[in-house]
């Protein structure tokens, strides 16, 4: 597909930030990756239902714009820490879906060689230091990575993703305070999907907006509509610039919604069917972004179909790769516990 026509480029001055900052090809890539996240999770869910994947998983369907928007301004060697709802972050940071499927299938070709599964999915080579099964567990680790960046003068920025539930953990407060006093290049991204498992933020959290917590640690607190890619990316871009300039951390609250339940055991008793359907029908992040791209002339229906077809093939190929990959030998059970063992 060719770049933006002259007419498109000229009219960009009035468009939201990302349409001025990034090329049409880059933005079409964003749509591609948002579809990739969505279809990956749908594919994983289907494999789970069919008994091909065991354990559990936490799907981020509905939160794709948040993952993509935050990662948009990051360089390949910038780093992230992620959460139990971390598939989108992993793909947004550059992971291959084939190796992610392989991990979910427990295979040696998976990112964690079958030792981690969904909840510990990582891609260290692309800067993803790992999802985390402990709420707020990754936040101090991100601050430590940012301390490394500052001490070793690597220029890396670190993003810590976490959910609304994490904002009531002590680790969140301790980590934000240390990042602020040491002016570290770290961005705290709270993906507020309204519920910590079943408990709403209104019932769990004393402040109305989690971004208000930033004031307690003398850092900017920014609220964005997490379902609008351009809003998220713009806030992330500013926070990355601030971090790289040595001005310290930012807390971004990305307000979003998960279409699926908390995990595979969720009966959705704490929210109404109407609420879920309203978010799916009227605020779906992929639909919103796709519509903008089309309205602004960055893509046409044919281009959208091409993306959907390419993603469908990537997903199908990824699942085949996972199925065909070898399982770990039982004799390797104790590998990776200590470095001298493997």
């Amino acid at each position: 597909m060719a770049g933006a026509s002259k007419a498109v480029v000229d009219s960009r001055a009035n468009l939201p930030f990302v349409y001025r900052q990034y090329s049409p090809e880059q933005l079409r890539q964003v749509l591609h990756k948002m579809y990739l996240i969505r279809r990956f999770e749908e594919g994983a869910e289907e494999c789970y239902m069919r008994g091909l994947i065991h354990g559990t998983m936490h799907l981020s369907i509905g939160q794709e714009a948040s993952a993509m928007g935050i990662c948009m301004p990051l360089a390949e060697d910038d780093q992230i820490t992620s959460t139990h709802r971390g598939h989108g972050h992993c793909i947004a940071k550059g992971a291959e879906v084939s190796r992610m499927f392989a991990e979910f299938f427990g295979k040696t070709t998976g990112y964690c060689k079958g030792r981690g599964g969904s909840m510990h999915i990582a891609d260290v080579a692309k800067g993803n230091l790992g999802a985390n099964g402990i709420v707020a567990g990754g936040i101090p680790i991100a601050v430590g990575a940012a301390l490394s960046s500052k001490r070793m003068k690597t220029g890396k920025v670190v993003v810590s993703f976490f959910g609304d539930g994490a904002n009531n953990e002590g680790a969140f407060h301790e980590a934000l305070n240390m990042a602020a006093i040491w002016k570290l290049p770290v961005i705290f991204v709270c993906e507020n999907n309204g519920y910590g498992m079943s408990t709403s933020t209104a019932r769990s959290t004393a402040v109305k907006n989690i971004a208000e917590r930033a004031a307690a640690y003398s850092m900017p607190g920014v609220i964005v509509n997490g379902n609008i890619f351009s809003e998220v990316a713009e806030a992330s871009f500013k926070a990355v610039e601030r971090a790289r300039a040595g001005e310290g951390p930012t807390l971004i609250e990305s307000k979003t919604y998960r279409h699926r339940g908390h995990s595979k055991s969720d009966r959705n008793r704490y929210r109404t069917k109407e609420e879920i359907e309203d978010w799916m029908a009227n605020r779906d992040p992929i639909t919103l972004f796709e519509t903008e791209l089309r309205d602004f002339g960055f893509i046409d229906d044919q281009g959208i179909q091409a993306i959907r077809d390419a993603v469908a093939k990537e997903i199908a190929d990824g699942i085949e790769f996972a199925k065909a990959s070898p399982a770990p030998e039982i004799a390797t059970l104790q590998n990776y516990v200590y470095t001298e063992h493997a």
């Binding site: 567990g137 101090p140 680790i141 991100a142 990575a145 301390l147 070793m152 301790e174 240390m178």
Partner: peptide, 23 residues
């Protein structure tokens, strides 16, 4: 000198260690 934050401090040390430092 860290704040009196044992959980956060331990986590910062872990994060620094996995990213190349020797805390």
């Amino acid at each position: 000198d860290t704040p009196i934050s044992e959980l956060g401090g331990a986590g910062v040390a872990v994060g620094a260690a996995v990213t190349g430092m020797r805390p």
